[in-house]
């Protein structure tokens, strides 16, 4: 894992990718720093961290598009997968390399609050908390990008799909406001989810009997829930999709609150996507 991590991190600096990412990131964050701290002479650095999250939309695809897609296009995955390394080691190495690259860039931005501290007092712990949140948010986005790059061997497709996925998360809170919250729509949504799971099972094992059994269990579960706790379906769509709302949890950090639950949330979110990436590569070997 360490070998992959080192190689990957070096590769960022050997190709333009790392510099583009870093330059883009520092340019925009510097811009925001200048306009919200320097010019108005405001010491509230946390606002910068709150407003520059949109950089991820472009920066994360740049960082992650190459990770696994290039590997399968150049057939170098043959080396990694036939070595004693194991798929998990390979994926983790790559994930941490991207996160490491992000961390290095982030450390460079630490210059901004240091500059501010010469001219006034800044809330140190607030900034530290903000950085932790910002880092975790970025790591979660990187895990999405990593997963997407395992789906294709074309970097451009990986970048565009990652961008779309991040954009979806971006507008999620806004979309959620317009979604129906009544009970009937919740039930319909639950049935759609069951159908989705059944379809997934059917297309991976192609066994009608098992699929039907799972469908019946799922629908039975929905019915049972309706009988025991019908309020469960009120606003179910919104509650389910809110799980993906990475930004909502970030708001706490920008308000200077450092609580455990969003930290756990971000780490589990990243872990799930890293795990899905491992499964995806394993699956490709079986097909």
């Amino acid at each position: 894992m360490l070998a992959v991590f080192r190689r990957e991190l070096r590769a960022y600096f050997l190709s333009p990718t790392g510099y583009i990412f870093m330059g883009f990131f520092l340019l925009l964050s510097g811009f925001f720093f200048a306009f919200s701290n320097l010019f108005p002479a405001s010491p509230s650095y946390i606002n910068v961290l709150g407003s520059i999250t949109f950089i991820f939309l472009i920066a994360v695809p740049i960082l992650t598009m190459r990770l696994l897609s290039e590997e399968s296009r150049q057939k170098t995955d043959q080396l990694l997968l036939t070595s004693p390394l194991g798929v998990t080691g390979m994926v983790l190495g790559k994930y941490f390399a991207a996160v490491g690259m992000f961390l290095i860039t982030l450390l460079a931005t630490c210059l901004y609050p240091i500059i501010l501290s010469f001219f006034g007092t800044i809330a140190v712990w607030e900034v530290v908390g903000g950085y932790i949140g910002f880092f975790l948010l970025g790591s979660a986005f990187i895990s999405i990008g990593l997963f997407v790059s395992s789906l294709t061997d074309n970097q451009v497709i990986a970048a565009v799909v990652t961008f779309s996925a991040l954009l979806f998360i971006w507008i999620l809170d806004w979309v959620l406001q317009g979604l129906p919250t009544d009970r009937a729509s919740g039930i319909v949504f639950a049935c759609v989810v069951v159908a989705g799971i059944v379809a997934l099972v059917y297309f991976s094992i192609r066994n009608i009997f098992v699929s039907v059994v799972i469908a019946l269990i799922g629908l039975g579960g929905v019915a049972a829930l309706y009988i025991t706790n019908e309020f469960f379906f009120d606003g179910l769509i919104v509650r389910a999709l809110e799980w993906f709302s990475l930004l909502k949890r970030y708001e706490d950090f920008t308000m200077g609150i450092l609580s455990l639950s969003p930290i756990v949330y971000y780490i589990s979110f990243s872990s799930i996507f890293v795990f899905l990436t491992v499964r995806m590569i394993e699956k490709r070997r079986w097909s």
Partner: peptide, 8 residues
Amino acid sequence: FPPLYLDM
């Protein structure tokens, strides 16, 4: 196709 990293 030898699995080579061209940038190394």
